[in-house]
Amino acid sequence: MPRTARVPRELAFLPFLGSRAVADGLLTRDMLRGAAWRRLLPDVYVLAAGYRPEDHRMWCEAVALTLPPGAAFCGLSAAYLWGVDLLDRQTPVSVALPSGVRRRRHPRIRYGYPRLAPGDHDHLAGLPVTTPARTAYDLGRQASMTESVVAVDALLARRLVRVNQLTEYAAARRRWPGVDRFRRALAFADPLSGSPMETRLRLTLVRGGLPAPVLQFEIHDGQGRFVGRVDFAYPRWRIAIEYEGDHHRERSQFRRDVARLNALRAQGWLVLRFTADDVVRQPARLLALVSQAIQERRQTAPPGTN
Rank of each mutant, 00 (worst) to 15 (best):
A5D: 10
H220T: 04
R134F: 00
A64W: 01
P42R: 06
E54I: 06
L166Q: 01
L286I: 05
R29Y: 08
V7G: 06
L86R: 07
L87K: 01
V63Y: 14
W176I: 00
H220Q: 09
R102W: 14
V258A: 11
A117G: 04
T135F: 08
H247V: 11
F13L: 15
S291T: 12
L186R: 14
L86A: 03
A187T: 01
A48W: 12
E147V: 10
A151V: 10
G112P: 02
P8I: 08
A62E: 15
P92S: 01
D277C: 10
G245Y: 02
R20K: 14
P53A: 04
W237S: 08
L26W: 08
D88N: 15
R229L: 13
F254E: 13
P2H: 14
H56C: 00
F16P: 11
L87Q: 05
P98Q: 02
A172E: 12
R183F: 02
P191C: 02
R260L: 08
V84K: 05
V230E: 15
T167A: 10
L97E: 01
V214G: 13
S19Q: 05
M58I: 06
P15G: 12
G208Q: 04
T4H: 14
P235W: 12
V95D: 09
R57K: 09
V84A: 15
G70C: 03
Q165P: 00
F73H: 01
V230N: 14
V22D: 02
L76S: 12
G83V: 02
E168Q: 10
V290Q: 11
Y51Q: 06
H123L: 11
F13I: 15
R255T: 04
D221Q: 14
P8D: 01
I109A: 04
L155R: 03
A170G: 04
V44D: 12
Y137E: 08
D231Y: 05
F254V: 00
R104V: 13
D257T: 00
E250M: 03
V179Q: 09
T300K: 12
Q90W: 15
L67M: 00
V84E: 00
V214E: 13
V149N: 07
L127P: 06
Q267G: 04
R200F: 01
P114L: 13
L32G: 02
Y137S: 14
N306S: 11
D190Y: 03
L127G: 01
I109T: 00
L86P: 03
A266Q: 15
S148Y: 02
P15S: 00
A96F: 03
A187K: 00
S94G: 05
L41M: 10
R39C: 07
N164C: 14
E250K: 12
A172D: 10
A212M: 05
A48S: 15
L186C: 02
C74L: 10
A170P: 14
L210P: 15
G178W: 07
L155Y: 04
W176S: 09
W176G: 08
A187Q: 06
Y80M: 07
L81C: 01
F188D: 00
G50H: 07
D138P: 09
D43C: 08
A157T: 12
